[in-house]
Design a protein around this nucleic acid. Structure first.
Ligand code: ZN
Ligand code: ZN
Ligand code: ZN
Ligand code: ZN
Lengths: 167, 167
DNA sequence: GGCCCGGTGGTATAAAGTAACGTTTCCGAA
DNA sequence: TTCGGAAACGTTACTTTATACCACCGGGCC
């Protein structure tokens, strides 16, 4: 997962990106406040790094990028920050890739669960409404006398921009 | 994942277990033949170890168990065998636990995809029919202009035998 | 024979994640 | 305002999971 992203998510002026990032950080701060969790400097730095990619990113990539900017950390520090961000609901974990990405749907913080569409080429992730999938899972679990705790639905493939036949 | 399994999947006479295992190995061999793949000794050994657990098991656990029996291998050898077994469709990979288990539904080898219910206590895995979930995923993907390639639906929780309130 | 190719062995290393333990920082109660 | 406990953080070392690289072997084929 060391390879660079294939596409930097289209052309976007740096200034605009900075503003978007700042907004995302602000929303994250809001989420932490609402849950009575502390949005410390470390957590903010880690979140900003994740949000800045607009894609999924591994813990050690975060580590490397922060190191480039002068913040040298131990892996465990990044993982602790990630745990807090997950708890606050401002990032999600992509199980099939051992990577993380910033949540862009505020309703996910209040229990609503999406499914993830992860592009194998650009690492971008779309979160789409599950349209009853999780209810079906609950029903199937009950039929199997299984008590579900954590559910995940992830799809790996190609996003619209990365499809062959579009250059 | 070093801890022993909580329950050895109920009482079953050793002789009967051996017979079941032999049958499973035979079915695996059949699957390899049908796909024109070689069911080598190493692959057979690795498969037998996975099938013998009746649960999910990590690559390094397989390694350790084979070592106990005198077959000392490098990790890469086990992973190569696992790759072949996955390709033949006789085992599945549990993404959320980085573990593998033997498939017990022959129809999974012909494209039909199940969902996995993985017990957090005994590591047992049930494969249940997806009841339209994958079709829903296809529909949602299409709506998002996403081209799906691999889909993961996994549930982590407690199986019937491991539920609290049943001793 | 010489060649290719899939499978294997061996060594080394990458990538992902955690344990243990002590110190600092924060925040609320006295 | 000071104190005490909990949460956050730093440091070190370690475990677990997975792959790169290269050599070799053995069977089919020319
Ligand atoms: Zn989200
Ligand atoms: Zn893409
Ligand atoms: Zn199966
Ligand atoms: Zn169980």
């Amino acid at each position: 997962m060391t390879e660079a992203q294939a596409k930097p998510n289209g052309p976007m002026p740096s200034a605009q990106m900075e503003r978007k990032l700042a907004k995302a950080v602000e929303r994250a701060q809001q989420a932490f406040m609402e849950k009575n969790l502390r949005f410390t400097q470390l957590r903010q730095d880690v979140f900003a790094e994740i949000a800045a990619t607009h894609a999924s990113i591994g813990a050690y990539d975060i580590l490397a990028r922060l190191a480039e900017k002068g913040t040298r950390l131990a892996p465990i520090s990044v993982y602790r920050a990630i745990d807090a961000l997950l708890e606050a609901g401002v990032i999600h974990r992509l199980e099939s890739k051992n990577a993380f990405f910033a949540c862009r749907r505020i309703e996910h913080r209040t229990g609503r669960r999406p499914i993830f569409l992860a592009c194998e080429n650009c690492n971008g992730v779309q979160e789409v409404d599950s349209d009853g999938i999780f209810e079906t899972i609950d029903r199937l679990s009950a039929a199997a006398s299984f008590q579900p705790r954590v559910k995940f639905v992830e799809v790996s493939g190609l996003c619209d921009a990365c499809r062959p036949g579009k250059d």
